[in-house]
């Protein structure tokens, strides 16, 4: 995260540590929100609410953490994400660590690709002057 605006990084770390009740020192760019920091589904909403408030932005439903996509029968079958679903997900979250996830692309493992760095990436893009 050192290449990013330090203000964004600092605020994201505070938000994650407060929302997930974890020590700030444990929040690193590669921390998986689910696997490393113990996030549950409602925590994703909490993080979105806090990001909106702190950065004074509106994050449309499903833009940061895709959710609707995972209940779409075209994209998911028996807990496994189908090629069409993977394509959609990769479009939405281009910066995630897909190589590891593609070894076993199940919904249960999807949480692992949501990392702290992914949120910083998203915000950096969203807050960039051209996108305002």
């Amino acid at each position: 995260m050192q290449n990013y605006n330090p203000e964004i990084v600092k605020n994201v770390k505070v938000i994650i540590s407060q929302a997930l009740k974890v020590d700030e020192s444990k929040v690193t760019p590669h921390s998986s929100l689910v696997k490393d920091l113990g996030a549950e589904s409602i925590d994703f909403l909490d993080i979105v609410f806090r990001l909106e408030k702190t950065f004074k932005i509106k994050i449309p439903k499903g833009e940061l953490f895709p959710e609707k996509l995972l209940t779409d029968a075209r994209f998911v079958k028996e807990g496994k994400i189908m090629p069409a679903g993977l394509e959609e997900l990769q479009k939405k979250i281009p910066d995630a660590d897909w190589a590891e996830f593609l070894k076993n692309p199940t919904i249960a493992n999807l949480g692992d690709i949501f990392t702290v760095g992914m949120i910083v990436d998203y915000l950096s893009e969203k807050l960039a002057p051209a996108n305002k």
Partner: peptide
């Protein structure tokens, strides 16, 4: 509830 969630 949104407020209550973010205020902890």
């Amino acid at each position: 509830s949104k407020q209550m969630v973010t205020q902890g």
